[in-house]
């Protein structure tokens, strides 16, 4: 394969990636829950420098009234990148990319939200990428799951997401930095926690069927790791409080 302009000599040197990670290793993951006070629920999720913030508004009255569904809540997802999130300023407002990502995230979450519990209402999820360094839709989806839980919206389970890919012929977990621009394959995967149900899948690049199946397996295991962290953080939010306030 011919190298693209600006590509580094190699993306993997001595089995290590440019940021020093091994192929099957995440960047540092950072989770905060309930960071916003006026939203019904909120969460931050970071993969390294990728930084997503999610806020849930609702269930609340849905407008226009004529479009209310008497049997269920209407879930709307709005993914957007802050203008300062990228190295070159991104233009504010909707793009074709943000519209598509909003749609696939909405479809992934539709698997778990008990929309029938809140007829005639709307549940609005606003997802903001404050800093982008690949895997932004995965970070946004993880933040969205946690924000829904924080809002008390009934869900079947947490949806968990991570990216996998292929660079320099090596299969990797959690695509980042130059791997995103110059790798061979980038694939975003989301699963329902602890279940063999894949609810988001987007890939570009060329791989064999065997590699694809390996990547799916890596992504599922990765999602399992993230789920454990998400769950621990949810517990912590409610268990940490008394110690703090008792001091």
């Amino acid at each position: 394969m011919s190298k693209k302009v600006g590509a580094p000599e190699a993306l993997i040197v001595d089995g290590k990636r440019l940021d020093g990670r091994s192929p099957n290793e995440f960047r540092p993951i950072n989770i905060e829950i309930g960071t916003l006070k006026r939203a019904n629920g909120s969460a931050e999720f970071r993969f390294g420098n990728t930084y997503a913030l999610a806020g849930v508004m609702g269930p609340r009255p849905f407008h226009p009234k004529a479009l209310q569904d008497p049997q269920r809540s209407i879930v709307r997802v709005n993914y957007a990148m802050a203008p300062f999130s990228t190295k070159e300023r991104s233009k504010p407002g909707k793009s074709r990319r943000s519209t598509e990502i909003s749609k696939v995230i909405n479809e992934a979450l539709a698997n778990v939200i008990f929309a029938e519990d809140y007829p005639r209402t709307g549940i609005d999820l606003f997802l903001v990428i404050l800093q982008a360094d690949a895997s932004t839709r995965c970070a946004a989806l993880n933040a969205a799951s946690l924000a829904l839980a924080d809002a008390g919206v009934p869900i079947r389970d947490l949806v968990v997401s991570c990216s996998v890919g292929k660079v320099d012929g090596t299969l990797i977990l959690d695509v980042a930095g130059l791997e995103d621009n110059f790798g061979d394959v980038d694939m975003a995967v989301a699963t329902i926690a602890n279940q063999d149900k894949i609810v988001l899948l987007q890939m570009d690049g060329i791989i064999t069927k065997e590699e694809f199946m390996t990547l799916i397996d890596m992504a599922k295991k990765g999602c399992g790791q993230i789920y454990d962290m998400m769950k621990a953080k949810l517990y912590e939010k409610y268990v940490a409080t008394p110690a703090e306030e008792g001091a």
Binding site: F114, A149, G152, V153, P154, I155, R156, D157
Partner: peptide, 16 residues
């Protein structure tokens, strides 16, 4: 309230 049945399991649907 706050739970659902999935096959033979009872699971939580809210944090609580």
């Amino acid at each position: 309230a706050g739970c659902y049945r999935a096959n033979n399991e009872i699971r939580a649907k809210q944090l609580g």
